[in-house]
Design a protein around this nucleic acid. Structure first.
Lengths: 143, 143
DNA sequence: TTACAACTTCAAGTCGACTTGAGGTCAAGG
DNA sequence: CCTTGACCTCAAGTCGACTTGAAGTTGTAA
């Protein structure tokens, strides 16, 4: 397949696909003339990348996860560890979400005066402090 | 309070606080010499900013909520929408986590070839040709 | 009074994930 | 054969939220 077809079928821009390839997240099978050719299986990989991106993972993280193809038990440990880290990240996001949801529902005029909100906010802040700062573009939101 | 104390107590860097002030998200009460002075209530505002940031709001959005009077004029719709977006993000993270966890346990060398993994990832079922036609409920297709 | 830590301003740099633009190549259809 | 549109490379630009660095000022403790 040409890059254009991959783009059409995956929803990712051709420029993004070139970028992924440059970063080693996907591979083309060769060229036809100048043009990159891709196997259909690349569609799965791009889908995985897209999924990871919308979950807020960086391309580096995704790359690391993709690259552990059936290797040793070391990698199993690594994978399990990453899953645990995701659990933690999910927990933190849930706290923030609860805070937001309460703020949206609370009748209190000034949210900063609501004890419940303040408590939730405190939690969110504390967990935000110890989290690595995520820079760059925020995750692509799925509407 | 000096900016340094606000930084210490809020967890935000002094440079970030100056940045927030420049953007109109917080206000100093004046100067002592050159130095900005802050009221303690700025701590609440910074906490709110931090909460909003970790929920994925932009400083502009947060600024709009903070800008009306001293009270936080929170946009409930926006907050609810953001909470929903967080739900979605959490859902996607959970999918990735489950995939990782499965990959850690699965013997398959190529995870993309494993049906269970594919199902977890919500990937389209591959090559229907080589699998027996199932009677009963057709698989739910993920678009 | 002097040292110095803590501030100040302003410009420029950084990070991640791409996008955009200029200028060039090429395969296929008419 | 010629056109055309889809591709190519490479450099630079973009966006948000800060950070960093240089160069200067000042409150305060010794």
């Amino acid at each position: 397949m040409d890059i254009g077809e991959v783009a059409r079928r995956s929803g990712a821009a051709a420029s993004a696909l070139r970028f992924y390839e440059e970063k080693g997240l996907i591979r083309s099978t060769g060229r036809r003339g100048l043009r990159r050719q891709y196997d259909p299986e690349v569609l799965d990989q791009v889908a995985l990348i897209t999924l990871g991106r919308s979950a807020g993972l960086t391309l580096d993280e995704i790359g690391r996860m993709l690259s552990v193809g059936g290797r040793a038990a070391v990698d199993r440990q690594l994978l399990a560890k990453r899953a645990d880290a995701l659990d933690e990240q999910i927990r933190q996001l849930a706290v923030v979400r609860d805070g937001l949801r309460h703020a949206a529902a609370c009748k209190e005029r000034d949210h900063l005066a609501c004890p419940k909100f303040r408590r939730l906010m405190g939690l969110a802040v504390r967990s935000a402090v110890q989290r690595p700062k995520s820079r760059g573009k925020p995750p692509r939101l799925v509407p």
